[in-house]
Amino acid sequence: MLAFKKLSCTLNKYIYTACKRNISFYDSPFLVDHENTKIKFETSTSPEEWKYVERVLPPAVVPTPIPKNNYPSKWKPQGDNLKDRPYFIARTKNHMLPVYLCISQRGIRRITKIKNIQGDIWLLEKQLRDFIQPQDIRPIRSQVNEFAGYIRFHGDYVNAIKYWLMKRNV
């Protein structure tokens, strides 16, 4: 009987600590400096070995993509020799196309926004409009902000515009 009581007591204690409320910082065990650890280690200051540590560390800035012939997804890095084009769409720092879908008014209004445009923004808007117009019966509504460098199209044309931009590699 006594043994059972003891067991139930320890069990209770265990359950109590497992689902304790009002847990605080002081409930967790304090860090103790164990003097005799079984794991043996030695410190090294060789730059040859530090190379492998650096390889594991996350990069501080986004690395430039490695040029390949084909990529597993539909994504491609931005092409070179774009200086003679009439307009330019700078990729984001993560090398993605800056084409976004802005949903507002509780999901009713969908606006496609293309950012980071330099150069002849009006020509780009005309070309995109000519590309999108056959997909919709209604006339395409758009807004061009030349100063801030963005175009907004009324409606969800994100994938169409991304396809168009990727194909031309601008």
């Binding site: 996350p58 990069p59 501080a60 800035v61 986004v62 720092k93």
Partner: peptide
């Protein structure tokens, strides 16, 4: 430039 291209 570092801030414009930083990861974290």
């Amino acid at each position: 430039l570092t801030h414009l291209h930083r990861t974290n």
